[in-house]
Amino acid sequence: MAKLYSRRAILAQIALGAGVAGAGLPVSHAFAAQDDRPWSFFTDAEAQWIAAVADVFIPQDDFPSASQAGVVDFIDFQMATAYGAGEGLYLDPPFPSGAVPEQGYQLKFTPAQLLRQGIEQAGQLGDIATMDATARADHVEQMSERDDIVGTLIAELWKLTKQGYFADPIYLGNHDYAGWRMVGFPGAHAYYTERVDADKRSVTPPPRGIAHDRGGTPYPPRAIGGGSD
């Protein structure tokens, strides 16, 4: 399946592989400079941090990791648009302490503010860029158990990572229908009246998104240094 990915992403993988081979040195950031498309919301450092966490959630196997499938591009786009700005979120004060989890989100931050401030706080808990895969997984697990903005951030990122991996590619994730191919979801064009109760299952059609594009969005994920190893 890896052959489906963009040249840039493959180059990035090769580079990362080389970095890891380099005796446990921090994963390099070499190829970020070659991707001239700016992030809409993230700084490069934030994007790398998000990629590292998202790839703990969904690592590479026969199917791409979260960042390889464009999840960081997806989250960047979400943070730069209505969702990140707090659409569908009531933020009127006050924000008293003592909330129980059953009362849901009670921070005063929009998702974009939560990500920016949460990543900054998380940075004080360890440098994920210098960790190997096992240490990264443990670090994410520990962050997720915290009863503070970092714990909330990890929960939000897990939600966004799944959305990015499986949403229609028009939102920049699920590149080349990675998520849909993995589970066998045929997408947005859906007429199954004659199939639903058929005795013999026919072959699931290849995915087509809202844009009716054979390959998913032509927009490839940005290359991210410091992502998965």
């Binding site: 659409e87 569908g88 979120l89 009531y90 003592g98 129980v100 009362q103 849901g104 009670q106």
Partner: peptide
């Protein structure tokens, strides 16, 4: 919910807090 929402609590001993989402 930005226009209209509600507050929620499990019992009268708690302070109800807004359903923010």
């Amino acid at each position: 919910v930005k226009k209209e929402t509600l507050t929620i609590r499990n019992n009268r001993d708690q302070q109800a807090l807004p359903m923010r989402r």
